[in-house]
């Protein structure tokens, strides 16, 4: 079974803060991490491979520095990794990103299973997974919290999807794309051998030409949505009110204040 995993390098959001005085962004250093949901995606791919055999191919579209997260994926056991990097990809929105990732998956010969994270923590859109599935013409299973069964021979998969009010058990044919939530597993850390292997590895880089991309469908040019302005959210009402004093007064006061909001019925 061939599994393709899409992972994205994201800024560690702890680094993006607002300076309360000037109300501008402060970004100390540029610490970047693997999108947390994508670590679960890689882990699930590895577990399925360990159980059913096959190969795990990990791909990431991003600037050259995104090789770091691919090295991590190699270190934990991915068989092949690819960085999709080209100046022409810059400014891609979810439509262009999905196109680019789908093209890449086709370039590497397709996959029986494609795994994405539920969403990326920088953009928070959760649109790329379904977009890739649509471009590849395969079904999608979003918010997967458990793979119950997978049969690479009969080309069948049964998963649990975590919804707002419960879990849906769904069956699909393979190939399929699934997006995973945190509940699905506990990602492993690289061991010494893995770290050694990565030290020597060179990460292959694929350009727009390598994946046969139509230049009108990638990067900013292929993106219907353009960011026109970035600004700070309105600061919450000038700090909070700390209710001080004896609890026998504080508790009724708090209850009184909350009852006053009329939100409690």
């Amino acid at each position: 079974m061939k599994i393709a995993v899409c992972i994205k390098q994201v800024p560690d959001t702890t680094d993006v803060k607002i300076n309360p005085e000037t109300n501008t962004l402060i970004r100390e250093g540029v610490a970047s991490i693997t999108n947390p949901f994508d670590e679960y995606a890689v882990e699930e791919a590895l577990r399925l491979k360990e159980k059913h055999g096959g190969e795990v191919h990990v791909i990431s579209m991003g600037p050259p520095q995104a090789v770091e997260i691919l090295k991590n994926a190699l270190a934990v056991g991915a068989d092949r990794v690819y960085l999709i990097s080209d100046k022409a990809f810059a400014g891609a929105d979810t439509l262009a990103t999905a196109y680019t990732l789908a093209k890449t998956i086709q370039t590497i010969g397709g996959a029986d299973l494609v795994i994405c994270g539920k969403q990326a923590i920088d953009g928070d859109t959760a649109q790329v997974g379904p977009g890739v599935a649509t471009r590849l013409g395969i079904p999608q299973l979003t918010y997967v919290s458990k793979v119950r069964e997978i049969d690479p021979v009969k080309k069948r998969i049964v998963v649990e999807r975590l919804l707002e009010n419960g879990k849906e058990v769904v069956e699909s044919s393979l190939p399929v794309l699934m997006t995973v939530v945190k509940d699905i597993n506990e990602p492993r850390h690289p061991n010494l051998m893995g770290i050694k292997r990565v030290a020597k590895a060179t990460i292959p880089i694929l350009t727009a030409k390598d994946i046969g991309a139509d230049e009108n469908r990638i990067g900013l040019k292929g993106s219907p949505t353009w960011v026109v302005r970035i600004f700070s959210p309105e600061a919450r009402g000038a700090g909070g009110e700390i209710l001080k004093g004896d609890l026998s007064e504080v508790v009724p006061l708090l209850v009184h204040k909350l009852m006053d909001t009329k939100f409690i019925k």
Binding site: P11, T13, V16, K17, I18, L25, I121, D122, G123, D124, T225, W226, V227, V228, R229, I230, F231, S232, P233
Partner: peptide, 10 residues
């Protein structure tokens, strides 16, 4: 975006 740290107009 960015976990609510910034707002973007699109």
């Amino acid at each position: 975006a960015f976990g609510g740290n910034i707002m973007a107009t699109i």
